[in-house]
Each structure stands twice: as structure tokens, then as C-alpha cells.
């Protein structure tokens, strides 16, 4: 468990981190290290250099601005879990954070790190998709903002270029009811399937609803058909049953020693139904 040799440099500002990324080939960002360090120790990844961004204070913190929740990419899962601001502004995020790993992992691992790593069994990608988060990416020519729906490009892959850095994530902060349900892999604690759902309803009628699923497929996705089947309709158990029963239609689910594809598809349906039930009381 000894990594291949690499250089290490701690950046103290976003500019410095970007400069290091530009001036070093094969450099890799180190944030909380919860995925990267094990991979390094197993020599599954052998970058020439690690740029440690954990000391950049501007990347850390949670604030509300113009009705949006602004979360620095270096904010830990634990900080989100413990934030009263998050609890008030984004019940979905507040529901998800305590379900990540264990307390030690949550103290180390970061929001931005999890999103940028884009593990198919990661939790945050589902929430980012469900709340349609905006991800702010800094590069040589300033920043660009990408919607979550455009951010994930495949398993372990995002639109972040090699010379760019995810700096903050903006999510709606109006307190939309939301919930994250997770079926934990008994070994890793990662999501076999995780379902992030937000929904509003008014006088028995569903307003907006968003459903995002992680763990089931190589990359997290929005269950758009199920969302359309619900939006604007009167809440009923039958409606939720019907919508959830199609949530896995057409999916090519992952398969592993713990959960064959058919089981993942079953979990998607069951968990979407249960999440909707909890939010819409039906």
C-alpha cells in the first residue's frame, strides 16, 4: 500500500491551484482524498503530481445569496450535514449528507470532490441532478457555470478539463421538500441505488417534481418520464405507483456480485415510489 512516487504541492488560492494545473502535466487535484488516496495506495492511479486544495479557505463554506445556496467545493459532507442553513434551504441535501460513508469519511470528504469524481455509486450526483445545481468551474479564462444535467459525461467523467477546478456549487435555496433514499452496499456503504427526489404539492395537486437516481447505471440520471407522469396531476397512491413502476424502463443497469441488474432496476422502482410517498404523503 505504497503509492508510486509523485510530487506534492499545496495551493493556497484558486489562482495558484490553476497555475499549478497549467504548469504540470498529469497533475491531480487532492481535496478530501476519500477516493483518491485509496486509488493511489493501490497504484491504480499514478499521477505525477498532487495539488492539495484543502488549504484554500475560499473553497470552503456555505452561504445564501439571492435565494440560492452557495456551497464551496471544498466544503465537507459533515459541514453540510451540520448546517442549519442547508437544513432550511435544501431538505434534500440535508437528508443526503448524513447518509454518506461514516463520520470519519464525512469529516474528510468534500462536496466538490464527490461531484468531480463522479463515482457511479456516489451520492451527491443524484442530489445535484435533482436540484439542478449549477456548478462553477474556474479556468485560465475565468469561470464558467454548468448545469448538473450537462456536468456528468460518463462513469467517473465530467466536463471539467484537466486545467480547470470546480470551485462552487449553487443550488436552489427555497426549501423545496426533498428526500434521499439510499440502499447501501453492505460492504462499501456506497449506494447500490440512491434516489433523490424533490416535490411540491398544493391542494392535493403535484407542482414540480424531480427524480434523480444514482448507483443504478454508470452515470446518475434524471427519471424524466416519471417526472412528467406526475407533474400537475392530483396526488394519489395509484398515480405514484404507476409513475414509479416505469422509473426503470429502458435502463441498462449495472451488475455486480452484490446486485444484479434486475435487482437494481427493482430498487429504482421501489425507492422512487417510497421517496414520492414520503414527500407527497400517498
Amino acid at each position: 500500500m505504497h503509492p508510486a512516487p509523485f510530487a506534492y504541492k499545496a495551493a493556497h488560492s484558486v489562482e495558484e491551484a490553476l497555475e499549478l494545473l497549467r504548469s504540470h502535466e498529469d497533475a491531480k487535484i487532492l481535496a478530501g482524498g476519500q477516493s483518491l488516496i485509496p486509488a493511489l495506495k493501490l497504484r491504480l492511479t499514478q499521477p505525477a503530481m498532487l495539488i492539495d486544495i484543502s488549504k484554500i479557505s475560499s473553497l470552503r463554506g456555505i452561504r445564501r445569496e439571492n435565494g440560492k445556496l452557495i456551497i464551496g467545493s471544498g466544503t465537507t459532507h459533515r459541514e453540510i450535514e451540520k448546517s442549519s442553513l442547508v437544513a432550511e434551504a435544501s431538505p434534500l441535501l440535508a437528508s443526503l449528507a448524513p447518509q454518506i460513508g461514516d463520520v470519519q469519511v464525512r469529516h474528510r470528504g468534500t462536496f466538490g470532490g464527490s461531484l468531480a469524481h463522479a463515482d457511479p455509486a456516489g451520492d451527491w450526483p443524484a442530489a445535484a441532478l435533482a436540484v439542478d445545481a449549477e456548478l462553477v468551474i474556474a479556468g485560465a479564462h475565468g469561470t464558467r457555470t454548468v448545469h448538473a444535467s450537462d456536468f456528468f459525461t460518463g462513469m467517473l467523467s465530467t466536463v471539467i478539463n484537466a486545467d480547470e477546478l470546480l470551485t462552487e456549487i449553487r443550488v436552489p435555496g427555497e426549501g423545496t421538500p426533498g428526500i434521499y433514499l439510499k440502499h447501501r452496499n453492505a460492504a462499501s456503504g456506497y449506494a447500490t441505488v440512491g434516489v433523490a427526489v424533490t416535490a411540491t404539492h398544493n391542494h392535493g395537486r403535484i407542482g414540480t417534481v424531480s427524480i434523480a437516481v444514482t448507483g443504478a447505471t454508470p452515470v446518475a440520471f434524471r427519471a424524466s418520464a416519471a417526472e412528467h407522469a406526475l407533474t400537475g396531476h392530483a396526488v394519489s397512491a395509484h398515480l405514484l405507483d404507476e409513475a414509479a413502476s416505469h422509473a426503470a424502463d429502458g435502463l441498462e443497469c449495472l451488475s455486480d456480485i452484490h446486485a444484479p441488474a434486475a435487482y437494481r432496476a427493482q430498487l429504482v422502482k421501489v425507492m422512487v415510489r417510497r421517496a414520492l410517498g414520503k414527500l407527497l404523503h400517498a
Binding site: 493501490l42 491504480l44 457511479p120 455509486a121 460518463g154 462513469m155 467517473l156 454508470p218 449495472l254 451488475s255 455486480d256 456480485i257
Partner: peptide, 16 residues
């Protein structure tokens, strides 16, 4: 070793 530790990634990676 990669298969023993990261078997969950291998089939989707192969397909990719």
C-alpha cells in the same frame, strides 16, 4: 489486482 479491487468498474469501462 484491478479486477479484485474494482470489479464493479470493469464491465462498464469495457463497454465505454
Amino acid at each position: 489486482p484491478v479486477f479484485s479491487i474494482g470489479s464493479r468498474f470493469v464491465p462498464p469501462a469495457a463497454k465505454l
